Computed example of a mutant assay.
Amino acid sequence: MSAQTRNFVKMHGLGNDFVIFDGRRDGFALEPAAAAAVADRHFGVGCDQVITLLPSARADLYMRIQNPDGSEAGACGNATRCVANLIFDADGGERMTIETKNGVLPCRREADGRITVDMGAPKLEWREIPLARAMDTLDVEFTIQSPAGFTLAAPVAVNMGNPHAVFFVANADAIDLAAVGPMIEHDPLFPERVNVSVAEVKNRELIRLRVWERGAGITLACGSAACAVTVAATRRGIIDGHATVIMDGGALDMRWAEDGHVLMTGPAALSFRGAWALHGGGR
């Protein structure tokens, strides 16, 4: 690595892709504009989130998550699996802890090579989402009509380190998420913006899920959204606390365990390694 470049690793979890920098030795950090430049798919490396590994006094490392618009996210399940897989491959071992803005997440490698992450307990009170006013998060008083004329209404609100609005629909693939996603993300009801999920329950053990991520747009997979839909469907009585969640990029096995924590199991893959030319905004 020269003074003008910074090494990175490109990884993905079910197509949800990340550029990962290691700042554990020198505290390397990217300003929001620099993170957005890295994430740009035309002029940068291209990714759904930029990840920086930093030292932690509470866990094996701290994971900073920046969206393509430079804003920070509190949690990312797919990125957590990728980072755990990266560290397991580099250092050996099958268990570790990763600190995020949402807390410390225990991770382990399963016998089949997949990674399980304990994503913690969901937050379900309206102030914890947060919502702009008091209401029942199991049946949020919200209705929106898309430019194409379809209506989404009465989502379940869940916070899994970031806010989620889960809409249960008859056909998830029929929803024009690119049109309605940004409308919901920026609605005043969600003062910190919101991740938008449309979920189709196939049966009590299978859910089809599509996601518009806050600050990122449509992604092939979203681990925290898979957690949120598992919690939301269980609260609605549609599933029995566990399900396979099928997203555009593939499947995650999800469980809302008896201790209240949500467990996510899925793959992580290395795409390539490279070096990013620093043009300012990195330190």
Rank of each mutant, 00 (worst) to 15 (best):
A111Q: 13
P68M: 11
L105I: 07
T97M: 06
D91A: 14
K101M: 14
Q49R: 11
G92Y: 05
E110T: 02
V104W: 03
V50N: 11
L131D: 12
V83R: 08
V50H: 10
L86I: 07
V104A: 07
Q49C: 05
G92D: 09
M96S: 03
R58Y: 12
C82F: 04
L61E: 10
N67Y: 09
L54E: 14
A84Q: 06
V50I: 11
L53E: 06
M63Y: 12
I87P: 00
R41I: 00
M119L: 06
N102C: 11
G103Y: 12
A132K: 08
I98V: 15
Y62A: 11
L53C: 12
M119D: 01
K123M: 13
Q66T: 10
T100S: 12
A84T: 03
L124T: 10
R108T: 07
N85Y: 09
E99L: 06
F88C: 01
R64P: 11
G46F: 08
Y62N: 12
T80H: 02
R127C: 02
R109F: 02
T97S: 14
D48Y: 10
T116Q: 08
N67P: 07
P122L: 00
D112I: 01
A59E: 04
N102M: 10
M63L: 15
T97W: 09
P122V: 07
D89T: 14
G44S: 11
A132N: 05
D112R: 02
F88E: 03
V104I: 14
V104D: 08
R64C: 03
G92T: 04
G70W: 11
T52W: 05
M96Y: 02
G44I: 13
A111I: 05
T97D: 12
E125H: 13
N78W: 04
L61C: 15
D118R: 07
E128W: 07
N85F: 09
D60S: 13
R109Q: 13
A75D: 08
M96R: 15
S56K: 04
V45D: 06
L86V: 04
A90D: 12
D40C: 09
V83C: 01
G77S: 05
D69E: 14
L124H: 03
S71Y: 08
A90W: 04
M119I: 06
R114L: 06
P130H: 05
G93D: 11
L61P: 04
Y62M: 14
L131C: 09
Q49E: 15
L124N: 07
P55G: 11
E110Q: 15
G113E: 04
R81T: 02
V104N: 06
D69S: 14
Q49K: 11
I129T: 06
A132Y: 09
I115R: 00
N102P: 03
A111C: 10
A132W: 05
R58I: 04
